[in-house]
Amino acid sequence: MGVLSFRDVWVEYGDKIILERLSLEVAEGSFVSIVGPSGAGKSTFLRLALGQEAPSRGRIFLDGEPLRAEPGPDRGVVFQRYSVFPHMTVLKNVMFGVQCARDGRAARTESIAMLERVGLGHNLDAYPAALSGGMQQRLALAQALITHPRILLLDEPLGALDPGVRLDMHELITELWREHGLTILMVTHDIKEAFKLGTRVIAIDKRRRDPQAPDRYGSTAVYDFPLDKPNAAGRQAVEAMMAPVE
């Protein structure tokens, strides 16, 4: 059984079906990329995993336990923006999680080590507003990892960054994933990124469409590629799916 499992999950708002019959298992230590056209329900999927929203039908399990519909310390997250606290210095941002979990005396040393690892060792007392976008995301990663979450959820974490910075971040994320033995679920609209970083790529989209009632059918996992070896055909299929519909 996986760390995180979705069993026949549906999300409906009234007549509008966002997700339908979504089932998937996220294995321990895997790096799962989620792609899909905009509006396909990627964010809804992540909100479910975070517990910001509960499924209308079906169940979600974390380590075999039913997931409470509330964010908790077992799931770390990095959003595209607003992931860090603007009123805390870099160091305090990272120490926050340790202090919430337990007595924070060891928090300082531990947090400094984590910040040095992500390359922010020289910015401990800076406020986030003084950091570049890439540095802010490094901080958000350090902040999420310090509490050792069971699964790390990344919501378009590099979407707002310049291409060069993005490449550096790819390296950092891959390294951290290996070093900490993380299980990562990353939502992205960048197919290249999805295939480069992931050990598995899942594409979600509507399987059926009713032109008269576009909300009649929801999205589900239409492709699921394990990437133990390079999968050029898979990538072409996903690219075709993401291409704008004529």
Binding site: Q52, G72, G76, F79, T147
Partner: peptide
């Protein structure tokens, strides 16, 4: 205050009070 910040705090183990 962006919802992201509030969710982030909760994923770091913060209670409502914190």
């Amino acid at each position: 205050i962006p919802e992201e910040q509030l969710v982030k705090a909760q994923t770091l183990g913060a209670s409502t009070w914190v």
